[in-house]
């Protein structure tokens, strides 16, 4: 269980998240929605442990273990994964080198064949592995490569920050099927999205959390996502 208990977060002294409570169990899909600037990415980075965000209250527990004060890499090694909304470039490092080194660090076999297979599954040919990480990748390619990493690292819990933003229909289908796939493998998923569209491609059991101004204002089933899709956050009066 990934448990967020009363989490409050500040950036440069400004409070961005107030008393967030959230529980993601293995194989569960949780959807985080909210208007721009409501704090969705802040929550994603805070759970992952980015040092740019200051935890001013609350705890984060991973399968019962308090990880609130652990550095990012320790959280990753304990099974937490964050798919970036805007994955950065890593200059001079090829995707293959990056992934092989990551696997080595994880103490796993460096399986170049498996990496290539996963990339192909996400419609990323072998040439992507010989290119510098994310350099010259389109938006859709970057996001699919994030999904490929999720499959490769096989985390316990994955936070996916807008994997469906700025991608074409085919990419969205691939991304959705990857999410369905990891849910089947009992990976707990916290999906941040603006659109109900991707939800229609995912298993129909999920919980929606609505974040407005740094607080969770509403929680419910798929019907909540539908309401937001129809009326927006203003009309929905959250």
């Amino acid at each position: 269980m990934l448990e967020i208990k009363g989490l409050s977060v500040a950036i440069d002294g400004k409070v961005k998240l107030k008393d967030i409570n959230l529980k993601v169990g293995p194989g569960e899909l949780h959807v985080l929605m909210g208007p721009n600037g409501s704090g969705k990415s802040t929550l994603a980075f805070s759970i992952m442990g980015s040092p740019r965000y200051e935890i001013i209250g609350g705890r984060i527990l991973l399968d019962g273990e308090d990880i609130t004060d652990l550095p990012m890499e320790e959280r990753a090694r304990r099974g937490l994964f964050l798919s970036y909304q805007n994955p950065p470039e890593i200059p001079m490092v090829t995707y293959r080198t990056f992934l092989l080194n990551a696997l080595r660090i994880w103490g796993k076999e460096p399986e170049p064949e498996r990496i290539a297979g996963i990339f192909r599954k996400l419609n990323l040919g072998d040439e992507f592995l010989t290119r510098e990480v994310n350099k010259g990748f389109s938006g859709g390619e970057r996001k699919r490569a994030e999904m490929a990493q999720m499959l490769l690292f096989n985390p316990k819990y994955a936070i996916l920050d807008e994997p469906d933003t700025g991608v074409d229909v085919d990419s969205m289908k691939l991304i959705a099927s990857t999410i369905s796939d990891v849910l089947q493998r009992d990976i707990g998923v916290l999906l941040i999205t603006h659109y109900a569209r991707i939800l229609s491609l995912l298993p129909s059991h999920f919980t929606v959390h609505v974040l407005v101004d740094g607080s969770v204002r509403a929680e419910g089933g798929p019907e909540l996502a539908q309401r937001i899709e129809e009326r927006g956050f203003e009309g929905g009066r959250f």
Binding site: S50, E73, A76, I90, M92, V93, T97, A102, I105
Partner: peptide
């Protein structure tokens, strides 16, 4: 790029391992 270092940390690299890989590249 600090952004790249942080990204690599989110994948399990320590600061040192991330910097080392970038320098090697």
């Amino acid at each position: 790029s600090q952004e790249a270092i942080e990204y690599m940390k989110s994948r399990g690299f320590s600061d040192e391992e991330a910097l080392s890989l970038m320098l090697r590249g």
